[in-house]
Amino acid sequence: MLNVSIYRYNPEVDSEPYMQDFQFDAEGKDIMVLDVLEKLKIQDPTLVFRRSCREGVCGSDGMNISGKNGLACVTPLSAAVKKGKLVIRPLPGLPVIRDLVIDMTQFYAQYEKIQPYLINNTPAPAIERLQSQEDRAKLDGLYECILCACCSTACPSFWWNPDKFIGPSGLLQAYRFLADSRDTGTEARLANLDDPFSVFRCHGIMNCVQVCPKGLNPTKAIGHIRDMLIRTAT
């Protein structure tokens, strides 16, 4: 039997959050953490978490699994159970709505701040805008972000300044548009980021890189943005 300890909090019932222990029989199978939660929800229908695609592409089920942020649907028990125990908490640093569901408003607000859409005010051609394979390759490792918030909620700089520091996810997306050969908004984008907090609160701790379930590297993207800001300033 596996001991599963889950963070519980229902604002209508509980004065404060607590950890609840469940016993779970995985029948020796290396199933995903999401499968465990689904089965526990049959036992206790009040257990609440988000989920959708169950294959690691929608970004719904980011949570803190035995101390590390990740997606429950692609985290097998073999990677999550430590000393016979599985500990599941909500992603840290943002307000909890209920159980494992966090309020992501601040996270999304930072995403919106970077103008996450292509800017190109030149008249569009009758077909697609051409882009070389080399230029397109510059977007690899950037566009795949699924907005799960595993990175930003693992970032101490984001914990301290979630209202002012864009955070790794938002900055990865900022660079996705800066790096796009079709985007003509570079100057305005950099001006929008040129303050002491938006980018420069990143201290290169690299928790974001360690936890990203898609294997992306926000720290590297932030480095590129820093370089661009410094070049623009000189």
């Binding site: 988000r50 959708s52 929608c58 970004g59 999304y108 699924i146």
Partner: peptide, 11 residues
């Protein structure tokens, strides 16, 4: 019912 980018088109 889900944040838009969690919709099944994503798959």
């Amino acid at each position: 019912k889900v944040f838009p980018t969690r919709s099944h088109t994503v798959s």
